[in-house]
Simulated assay, not measured.
Amino acid sequence: MTRVIIVDDDLFVRTTLANELRAAGIEVPGRYASGLDAVAAIRHDRPHVALVDVVMPDPDGPATTRLLREASPRTQVLALTSLTDPKAASAMLNAGALGFLPKDLSPEAIVHAVQSARHGLAVLGGAGAGMVERRHRSDVADMLTPVERQILVMIREGSTTEEISRAVFLSQSTVKYHIAALMEKLGASNRVRLAIRAYELGL
Rank of each mutant, 00 (worst) to 15 (best):
A117V: 11
S106K: 11
S90F: 08
T81G: 01
P102H: 06
V114T: 04
S106Y: 09
H48E: 03
L83R: 09
E133I: 10
M143W: 07
P86I: 02
S82D: 13
A141K: 12
G120H: 01
V111S: 08
H136T: 09
A141Q: 12
R69Q: 04
G130V: 12
H48V: 01
H112L: 13
H112E: 14
P57I: 08
A127S: 08
M143Q: 15
M92L: 12
A79Q: 10
S138V: 08
A117H: 09
L124Y: 00
V111D: 12
L121N: 14
G99T: 02
A109T: 09
A71E: 12
A88H: 15
P86S: 09
L67A: 15
A71G: 04
M131N: 13
D53G: 08
L67P: 00
A95V: 04
V114H: 10
V49F: 10
V114L: 11
L121G: 02
V111Q: 05
M143G: 15
Q115K: 15
L124W: 06
F100T: 05
T75S: 10
P59F: 09
V49R: 08
S138P: 13
E70C: 02
R134T: 14
L80D: 01
S106L: 14
D60Y: 07
D53V: 08
H112R: 15
H112C: 07
L121H: 03
F100P: 01
E70P: 01
